[in-house]
């Protein structure tokens, strides 16, 4: 799908979320769902398979999300799957997050971690990242076991890597 169409889908989702008065929550839930789809090839193929009836794919989405997201988020994801955009959910979600943060004059900081960060940690991390990059950021946590420990933050094209995986890699290269 073209980038323009991605942006239009993202803008439409943001408009719906704004109308529902829970834009930030929808962004976060959509982002988390996109990461879950990204981590499962089977799920991504299923949601993007046009041979599976749209109702069946929507049902799968609803079953997966359950009560872990708002109804608005579930309805928006279901709409994307029914429209045959199941394979583009990651790109649309990333665009939604970026456009939402931009509307608040912030940048998106994708934080890869083994465990979930507390709200306090996210606040202090955002403060630290602002002092380091000069940008106000919105933290988006991505659970990734491969980092083994520590954090990896990506803000636009800038990467700040403090993971155990990278330390071990550097140790291996040092030999």
């Amino acid at each position: 799908m073209s980038e323009d169409r991605i942006i239009k889908y993202a803008e439409a989702i943001l408009a719906v979320a704004s109308a529902e008065n829970n834009g930030a929550e929808v962004e976060d839930e959509l982002f988390r769902f996109a990461r879950a789809v990204e981590g499962s090839d089977e799920l991504r193929l299923t949601l993007s398979n046009a041979k599976i009836p749209a109702a069946r794919r929507q049902q799968i989405v609803e079953d997966l999300i359950g009560d872990q997201a708002t109804s608005a988020t579930t309805a928006l994801i279901s709409m994307l799957v029914a429209a045959g955009r199941g394979g583009d959910i990651q790109r649309i979600a990333d665009q939604v997050v970026e456009l939402g943060a931009a509307s608040r004059a912030k940048a998106v900081a994708e934080v890869y971690s083994v465990i979930e960060l507390t709200q306090d940690q996210q606040t202090r991390l955002a403060s630290s990242l602002k002092s380091a990059t000069g940008k106000d950021v919105e933290i988006k946590i991505i659970i990734d076991e491969t980092v083994m420990g520590g954090l990896l933050v990506q803000i636009e094209d800038e990467v700040i890597d403090g993971t155990v995986r990278t330390r071990l890699k550097q140790l291996r290269e040092a030999f």
Partner: peptide, 26 residues
Amino acid sequence: AERVVEANLDAEAQTRLIENYINQVG
């Protein structure tokens, strides 16, 4: 080293690593 690290990376160690990261970046 990985085995040692994995064996020792419990929740407390993960939290400590995250805290260290936040402090270093700041």
